[in-house]
Amino acid sequence: MDTDQELVILALCCHYCAYAAADMAGSMRLQYPGSVRVLRFPCTSKIEVNYLLTAFERGIDGILVAGCLEGGCHFLEGNLRARRRVERAKKLLDEIGLGAGRLEMFNLSSAEGPRFAEIATEMHERVVELGPSPLRRGREAVLAGVAGMASLAEAVIAGEKT
C-alpha cells in the first residue's frame, strides 16, 4: 500500500441522520479522510450481518455503521437492532481472525456534521493502525467491490432486494 488514501472504509449511513450529517459536513467544508465512502440506507436496520461480511470478503478495510441517536430512530428501534447485528458481525470477525476492530457502530443526529467528520477520521485512524485488510485483492478489485456494495445498497433502497 502506498498511502493511507488507498484504504477503503465504508460508511453505511442511515438516510434520516448520518447521511444528512455527512451532507452537512460537506456543506460546512469539513475535512475527513478520502478513504471513507458513504453509502445511504433507509435505516441502519436494513443492514444485515451478511451484507457486512460480504463487504469484508470483497476486501474492504473497515466499515462504520452510522445510525440515529438511541431513542431517535425514525423507525423507533431500527438502530438498536442494527447495533445487535453489528455486535454479532464483530464476534464473527474475531472468530475468523480478521478482528472486530474493523467494524464499528456510531450514533449521531442529522445536525451533527462535525461529529460525522470526527467519526470518519476516528475510523480511518483505527484502520490505519490495523493496516489494510489481509483479504484485499488490489485496489481495483476493492473499488469494484465498493461499486458492487453501492449498487446492492441502491437495490435495497429500491426494495428490489431484502
Binding site: N50, L53, E57, L92, E95, I96, G97, L135
Partner: peptide
C-alpha cells in the same frame, strides 16, 4: 448459510 459461507471463505483465505 450466506453468513457462514462468507465467514468460512474469509477464514480459509486468512489461513
Amino acid at each position: 448459510v450466506g453468513i457462514i459461507g462468507a465467514a468460512l471463505r474469509m477464514s480459509l483465505k486468512l489461513v
